[in-house]
């Protein structure tokens, strides 16, 4: 086990993937000598060269579109979108080309492209630098949407995403980049080098994790809100409420089974994400829990998320984002039933 930050773990995972497979390339803005604006690709340009760590023109659609073309010849491009709010010029390439090529070619073409997106807020950034657009992509079939919350998942899942034959959008919680954790660097290497490694990696990436067991309330979180959910659970432990925390890890596919199993146990579900609640991932979870665990529920499924307003200036972001008080408020409300 090694101690790493989330950013360091993703960096180490990228390095391992590039060492394992010479077809893995990184593409993006400022990812070369600078190492990316968050330094996630730090050192890789120096060690692998500009041919494999490519500083691209400043055009997101162009980056994703050319990555698609390169992957058609067997390359495995890992694209960095500099900030969440700048992904929209590439929205068309991602949703109409990347997501659909395998389908429209009836399986003849696979596009193993990974799109890394530093996402979500809480770092005092300017406009368009703190958004959570994952639900916009989860609505499109053909994409896998994942988000690591821990250094271990950052290390494992980036390699699994690269190994997967499907396009994967990899949402990295930028506020958690410098959180540290223990990382086992051997397990995923063994998985990927074994027979059927890409399939088992894709499958593992499609499952949620019970981050803490509990019996009264389930809090479903992913990416930046997992730590928040665990803080709430720890606090409530002393007050006699037992909270189960599910780290979703994957939004598409959604691991309904793990969420529903927990819902049947606790009867109370709260979904916490930074993205606006309206029409979001939480709404999808609420719907699935209602469909599959209706008679086990003691309370309505609640959502704690961003509001249906543009992401505000950073002086207001801690009121806009889910915080401990709002999560505890939601727990109080479900426990009233």
């Amino acid at each position: 086990m090694t101690t790493m930050t989330l950013a360091g773990a993703i960096n180490a995972g990228l390095r391992a993937a590039m060492e394992r497979d010479s077809k893995v390339l990184l593409m993006g803005e400022d990812i070369g000598p600078l190492g990316g604006v968050f330094r996630v690709t730090d050192g890789l340009w120096k060690d692998f060269g500009g041919e494999r760590v490519m500083d691209t023109p400043l055009a997101e659609s162009g980056i994703v579109g050319t990555a698609i073309g390169m992957s058609m010849r067997g390359y495995r491009p890992v694209v960095e979108i500099q900030f969440d709010g700048f992904i929209f010029p590439a929205f068309d390439q991602i949703t109409t080309s990347l997501a659909k090529m395998h389908y429209r070619s009836r399986g003849a073409i696979t596009l193993p492209v990974v799109i890394r997106v530093p996402f979500a807020g809480g770092i005092g950034a300017v406009e368009h630098h703190s958004e959570s657009p994952e639900a916009l992509f989860a609505h499109t079939a053909g994409l896998r949407i994942v988000s690591p919350a821990t250094p271990q998942d950052g290390f494992d899942m980036i390699q699994q995403a690269i190994a997967s034959p499907d396009p994967v959008m990899f949402f990295e919680p930028k506020a958690r980049y410098w959180d540290k954790g223990e990382v086992d660097t051997d397990r995923v290497a063994a998985q990927l080098s074994s027979e059927g490694g890409a399939s088992s990696a894709t499958d593992e990436m499609a499952h949620a994790r019970v981050a803490r067991e509990g019996s009264d309330v389930t809090i479903v979180a992913y990416g930046p809100t997992v730590r928040l959910a665990l803080q709430a659970a720890a606090l409530l432990d002393g007050e006699g409420a037992s909270v189960e925390v599910i780290d979703l890890r994957t939004i598409s596919p959604l691991d309904t089974e793990t969420v529903v199993r927990s819902a049947r146990k606790t009867g109370r579900v709260i979904v916490v994400h930074e993205a606006p609640s309206a029409f979001g991932t939480g709404a999808e979870i609420a719907s699935r829990v209602t469909e599959e665990a209706f008679f086990h529920l003691h309370a309505p499924v609640l959502r704690v998320g961003g509001f249906h307003a543009p992401y505000p200036g950073s002086k207001l972001e801690h009121d806009y984002l889910p915080n401990l008080d709002r999560v505890l408020d939601a727990v109080d409300r479900v426990l009233m039933h």
Partner: peptide
């Protein structure tokens, strides 16, 4: 068919 190359729970 062929929505994904690997199985996807929703599909």
């Amino acid at each position: 068919e062929h929505v994904y190359a690997e199985p996807h729970a929703t599909v």
